[in-house]
Write a protein that binds this DNA or RNA. Sequence first.
DNA 1: ACGGCATGGTGACCATGGAAGACGTCGCCC
DNA 2: GGGCGACGTCTTCCATGGTCACCATGCCGT
Lengths: 332, 332
Amino acid sequence: MVTMEDVARLAGVSKMTVSNVVNNRDGVGDLVRQRVLEAIRQSGYRVNVSARTLRSGRTGVIGLAVPDIELPYFGHLAAHVIEAAGRQGFHVAIEQTGAAAAGEADAIAHSRTLHFDGLILSAVELDRLDEHPAEAGYPLVMLGEQDFGGRFDHVAMPNEEGTKAATTHLADRGCRRIAIVTGRASDDVNMVTRRHYGYLAALAERGIGVDPALVFSLDDASMEAGREAACRLVDSGHEIDGVVAVTDTVALGVLRGLADRGLRVPEDVRLIGFDDIPESGFTVPSLSTVAPDHRWMAERAVELVAQRIRAPLRPTAQYVAPFELVIRESTR
Amino acid sequence: MVTMEDVARLAGVSKMTVSNVVNNRDGVGDLVRQRVLEAIRQSGYRVNVSARTLRSGRTGVIGLAVPDIELPYFGHLAAHVIEAAGRQGFHVAIEQTGAAAAGEADAIAHSRTLHFDGLILSAVELDRLDEHPAEAGYPLVMLGEQDFGGRFDHVAMPNEEGTKAATTHLADRGCRRIAIVTGRASDDVNMVTRRHYGYLAALAERGIGVDPALVFSLDDASMEAGREAACRLVDSGHEIDGVVAVTDTVALGVLRGLADRGLRVPEDVRLIGFDDIPESGFTVPSLSTVAPDHRWMAERAVELVAQRIRAPLRPTAQYVAPFELVIRESTR
DNA sequence: ACGGCATGGTGACCATGGAAGACGTCGCCC
DNA sequence: GGGCGACGTCTTCCATGGTCACCATGCCGT
């Protein structure tokens, strides 16, 4: 391997000068700089990231922990995060937490041992985090669902607002028997309950009564779970004319389940999702949905870790992503 | 930061002994080992990966370069790779190449500068690789589409075999006017032409003539491109009763495009895809597809990099993934 | 008494970056 | 005009946290 020392010898300078050139510091004369650059080119030298890291204490890598990269929503988000981080000169390493508190705690610990400069955690389960290994002073940004009472930098989905808008939209289309297919109930104010609040708020505002029989809880937010929920919902015999799905992924399953039971969307039942994953524009019928600005979220999150890396003790910031309602065939 | 030196002092041993304990090497007595472990626990010590890497020359990280993590197929694959690598004690860093030769070459260079121990490259564009920065001796495994004449370890999709089976399946269902929606043509024997060969081979075997008007080339393998192709296909007025899509992602677009033009699947046109992404089971109608064993591919690829890291000069290995035909509603 | 094994220690070394200093030159001021 | 400080440029030395190759010690069996 060709080292800085080799380049220095080749250019007839000391390795510190090479270091200065490599890192674009000034205090190096133009002539010498050119000589060094030429030597670097000739020798094919590349900085040794490990040595730099060891010396400087920075890795230039931020971790991104998501429940499951296979879910379209997280793949989507990851793409934006990678891009935004790249613009700030960071690399991204992706961890999977498996949507479990243990995995999320692991990701934090792991992130520290690998000496990531910071971590963006898309937590869905980790609640009482003060009992968890979130050592103070480590740049940690929560992305997405949970709310930790201002203890961390946080970029939130417009959970309540978005679901409320979605439900209101169904009501405005004339739906009066609106079901919600939601996630597992939890003690904490997480994504599921937030979205549920939005649903309730919309119903209240439109003067529609709440029927507990129209609330379906899923164990996981998968397509299969959505499909089963839709089937059970129809089989239960309760009259419905609208469904709010907690995510688009679930909505895809619901769409399929309704088809399995011979119900037409939107003629018999209107359906709306949340996330606006790419697939939603291509289903038959295409899926109306709440579209949070994923790019905005990714940029904000990266910005926050970057800031916290530079200034660990800055007060925490809380953002809620903007969103818009995308109306497609499923609620026409 | 707690260093090995600190632990050593706390346990009353030298740091080499701590190193031996940390790395589970023998030559350390049980008593001393316990003392060291206790000291590690008390101090909250974590190894500094950079220092280890600097000295030992190994990072324990392998790169995975894919065109776009946002495409379901690659997310899917990445999940399997991460899991398989984890079992072998490697971490995975994901790079996006943007489906461009430049990006792919970058990923190789980048992978080396970050001192990944090896790289799994899901190349779709990089062809004449001998002119590219694939320095000999660097553990590089090609995953998926391309074929480099045995110069690299390679885990291939069953491109030709799978597409042939898919086309034959349509023919056996009675289709006689079978279109193919494929990717950009290229000079090289890549995924697109391989799959095209399979299509042609099946037609020949079933005695069905080839109609150039039924071959549609896409600029990129996206849902939107699939939709447009389907529309153009119908608008062109050519009679068709079957469509082979080059990937499931494209097939989702085709499905939507056919719906846009009022054609029913499978009654008017049968449709089959390739990849078996999770979404394919939930579309309406659900999508028949060629299902390569992704888990198998990921495991094989990880196994190959791991082997090559240990033995750089081993002769190259070539695998073709097994597959099965998954028959769903779109070809009933 | 001597060789061998089991256990643990020593110092060099990996590639880079920070701090402080050396060196030459130039300008300023008396 | 000479001495001196300041400045720009580059060098030297050392620290960073582990690991490697080798060495030292002590105990055992023969």
